[in-house]
Design a protein around this nucleic acid. Structure first.
Length: 579
DNA sequence: CTCGTGGGATAGGTGGACAC
DNA sequence: GTGTCCACCTATCCCACGAG
């Protein structure tokens, strides 16, 4: 079997030879049947060829089209040749990740933006590889260094996970950049689209089937194009799709070969003869997801588990997602599998009646989502939805669970939502930061000295506790006292920063599943003077209030495990009353 | 009702040129 | 000499469908 590239090159030379001997000698040439059929096809279309040259007559063949036909009327026709087995689709181009935007979409600026994000993700990728191989973390390592220490040549299961995270993140970055790009420069999108699909060239696909059956066809998506409407959506883990008219261009991020090879994009396309049918495809897919979700729920058996709170959260995500599909049957699912996997893994740990309540509650939850979006963007269209896998998110403060990609007039916007489920109407836990991080840069960002003081207090108490010199409760109260004192000496800016980050970025939809109710909690920027009330409302809590007590947030110090475990690490419950 | 098969969708992989 | 980019094609999984 010939390696792929050689096979393509031989095809080009054979076709050229076949055309020449048809022209010169007027008889069937001594070439492969695929080349003869292809030559016949080309000559039938262009009977008056005077000369044909191939790309191998140039010093850099890859920069030229496979063949150039010279016609007797002086025209020059550029030809691209493809030979594939069976019905497979061709891959028109294959471009480098760090140059495709500037080269094909003519936006050097955007390329630079993308590359910055790329570099950040790539650093993360390399350090994850290093940690996997060595067992300990590293801050900064480049590819050469890593290659010297660990010449990693192949993907294995663990590296695949790291790779998927990386490629996923590239795709996400690309998607959000391209959303703005589509809004602002649709013409550039159009250009890139045309070059990538070679619509100004004469493209010939030769197919070879079983029993040496050969067909020849043209690839010319020109008629399918209409740039009046560009749709942007994601496919699977690492593909970005741009739909124009009835043809979609797929940009798939992938590695050249091994884990330390370069990253490129494989270009693909999908030709849709009937655009209405295309929507039906998504409609049908959504219908199937809903059906499969029901099947999963019907066939599973309840497994009692001590701590089901994680499972409840995941099931809530899945149900809200499914309810969205129910109400927006034409929307595009970026990943139809993820939601089903969530249900499969977590639904068994939730009791049947709680599951039932969660499901019923997804209706008011979606009602809330619709309301909040409607007030922001009247007449919106939900183009695609996505449940965000949490391990894939780089920004630890970005706790969005659900991403909605909307179309508002002719603008594409993304709204991120965080979904929370609680059994009864009560206090809501926003986050659970560790005691070691609460004063760090992710939250209040107070000086290292203060952080040290807090940690020292914790260490001291841990020692005392182990010596039986103080109780659980006393430890908590003590830490809370110190935390309160430290926060009281923080600046307003630091307090604001901390509260902002505890609230997080997105909108929160709170489902009170035992009451079949849902609330929207939109984050309002913190304004006015923030007051720190130490040891309130109890000795283990510190409360921050602002706007004369209209809003408040309390930080409760607690152990990460139960009392039966003795001393366990300390964390905070950042809690807020629901209004 | 089972089993093979064709097609769609996705993923994987290689050779060559060139810039640094 | 290595990384990057470009061109090109195969492999595999999944599923509907029809023959036996």
């Amino acid at each position: 079997m010939f390696p792929q590239k050689k096979q393509g090159n031989i095809h080009v030379i054979s076709v050229k030879n076949a055309i020449e001997s048809f022209l010169r000698e007027g008889k069937v040439p001594n070439e492969m049947p695929t080349a003869i059929k292809t030559a016949e096809y080309i000559i039938a279309k262009y009977p008056d060829i005077t000369k044909v040259i191939s790309k191998f007559e140039f010093p850099n063949p890859d920069a030229h089209s496979d063949l150039v036909l010279y016609l007797s009327n002086g025209d020059k026709i550029k030809v691209n040749l493809y030979k594939v087995t069976g019905r497979g689709s061709i891959q028109p181009k294959n471009v480098g990740a760090k140059s495709f935007i500037s080269k094909y979409f003519f936006d050097a600026n955007l390329q630079e933006k993308f590359n910055m994000l790329y570099d950040k993700d790539y650093d993360q990728y390399l350090s994850e590889l290093f940690e996997y191989k060595s067992g300990y973390p590293i801050i900064d390592i480049n590819k050469e260094e890593l290659r010297k220490i660990f010449p990693i040549n192949q993907f294995d299961d663990d590296i695949n996970e790291i790779r998927q995270r990386f490629l996923y993140s590239l795709r996400e970055n690309c998607f959000s950049l391209f959303q703005d790009f589509c809004n602002n420069y649709p013409l550039l999108i159009e250009n890139g689209f045309k070059t990538m699909l070679m619509i100004d060239d004469y493209n010939i696909i030769t197919r070879i089937f079983a029993k040496n059956k050969i067909t020849v066809e043209e690839f010319n998506p020109k008629d399918a194009l209409s740039f009046k409407d560009i749709k942007l959506f994601k496919t699977g883990n690492n593909t970005l799709s741009i739909l124009c008219g009835s043809i979609s261009l797929n940009l798939r991020f992938k590695f050249e070969s091994g884990p330390l090879s370069s990253v490129k994009l494989a270009i693909g396309y999908r030709y849709i003869r009937d655009i209405n049918k295309y929507e039906e495809v998504f409609h049908f897919r959504n219908f199937r997801t809903l059906k499969m979700a029901n099947d999963i729920l019907r066939h599973m058996t309840y497994v009692k588990k001590e701590n089901k709170s994680n499972a409840i959260g995941k099931c809530n995500e899945a149900f809200v997602y499914l309810q969205l599909l129910e109400e927006f049957p034409n929307t595009i699912q970026d990943d139809p599998e993820y939601c089903l996997r969530l249900l499969e893994s977590y639904a068994p740990y939730v009791s049947p009646e709680e599951l039932h309540n969660l499901k019923l509650s997804s209706v008011p939850a979606v009602e809330q989502i619709k309301n909040i979006i409607k007030t922001k963007y009247p007449n919106f269209m939900l183009e695609s939805v996505q449940l965000v896998p949490e391990s894939y998110v780089n920004d630890k403060l970005d706790t969005a669970d659900l991403q909605l990609n909307l179309r508002y007039h002719n603008t594409r916007v993304t709204e991120k939502l965080s979904l929370k489920a609680i059994s009864k109407d009560k206090k809501l836990t926003l986050k659970n930061p560790g005691i070691g991080t609460i004063l760090g840069e992710n939250f209040f960002n107070i000086s290292k000295l203060y952080n040290l003081e807090l940690n020292k207090t914790v260490e001291l108490l841990k020692g005392k506790f182990i010596q039986n010199e103080c109780t659980h409760m006393e430890s908590l109260e003590n830490v809370s006292y110190v935390l309160g004192k430290l926060l009281q000496s923080a600046t307003q800016e630091q307090l604001r920063h901390g509260i902002d980050n505890i609230f997080g970025k997105p909108l929160v939809i709170i489902t009170v599943y035992n009451d079949i109710k849902a609330y929207t909690h939109e984050r309002i920027p913190v304004t006015g003077e923030i007051t720190v009330i130490a040891q309130s409302p109890s000795n283990t809590q510190t409360t921050l209030t602002w706007e004369n007590g209209k809003y408040s947030l309390s930080l409760r110090v607690k152990f990460s495990k139960g009392q039966s475990h003795g001393w366990s690490s300390l964390k905070l419950a950042a809690e807020q009353k629901i209004q």
